[in-house]
């Protein structure tokens, strides 16, 4: 009995030492301090935004699993609700989704990478997230296709590896918000003259 108990404990310790899981429930993205644009937009999220999981094995070391759950959805909701006057999230695929809104936005994730202190040889965790933001006008024509390369970095704290990696990922998400706002403010493709649909 004792032998079984000890071997289970040893095995559990072994597996715990080989992988680490980080969960980001809510990145707590604050309201953006910007002037709202007078448009009605729809956001269409890919299915994986409800439960996004990223797994990476550090060569020769343990593997890391980052569970973003629905935090990317919360991030984009906050960005676009701060930037546009009217925002609707489309839950089901529908035909003719474009014609009821000034713009329809489709964000997605192209790639995620991270580095841990064992790789970077310094006391930092870094996270790179490459989002893609596509914006369609009311006819369904793609007017914007931006790659958004976001970066977050945190220094290590004692016994908090998982939390440090999660914080670096949250910083990358905040960086994405900053980049998207800069791009949205700069573009001339979202001018009222190009639109025929008015806010209902």
């Amino acid at each position: 009995m004792n032998v079984k108990y000890i071997s289970t404990l040893v095995l559990l310790t072994f597996f715990y030492g080989c992988s680490s899981q980080v969960k980001i429930d809510n990145p707590n993205i604050p309201k953006l301090l910007i002037t709202q644009a007078p448009f009605s937009v729809a956001i269409k999220y890919p299915d994986n935004f409800n439960n996004f999981l990223h797994e990476e094995k550090v060569i020769g070391k343990k593997s890391w699993q980052v569970d973003f759950s629905n935090s990317n959805r919360l991030l984009f909701n906050e960005i676009f609700q701060s930037f546009f006057e009217q925002v609707s999230v489309l839950e089901n695929s529908e035909d003719n989704i474009y014609e009821n809104f000034n713009f329809t936005i489709m964000p997605s994730i192209d790639a995620i990478e991270f580095s841990v202190p064992e790789q970077s040889q310094d006391e930092t965790f870094s996270v790179w997230i490459r989002y893609r933001v596509k914006i369609f006008d009311f006819t369904g024509m793609e007017i914007i296709n931006w790659p958004i390369s976001a970066y977050g970095k945190t220094s290590t704290t004692t016994f908090s590896d998982d939390k440090d990696l999660a914080n670096a990922a949250i910083l990358a998400m905040r960086d994405a918000a900053a980049l998207i706002v800069l791009q949205l403010e700069k573009t001339n493709k979202l001018s009222p003259s190009t639109q025929q649909v008015k806010i209902k």
């Binding site: 993205i29 604050p30 309201k31 953006l32 301090l33 910083l171 905040r174 960086d175 918000a177 900053a178 980049l179 706002v181 800069l182």
Partner: peptide, 9 residues
């Protein structure tokens, strides 16, 4: 309070 104007970028 000033998000996103005092982010590293």
């Amino acid at each position: 309070l000033l998000f996103p104007w005092f982010e590293p970028r």
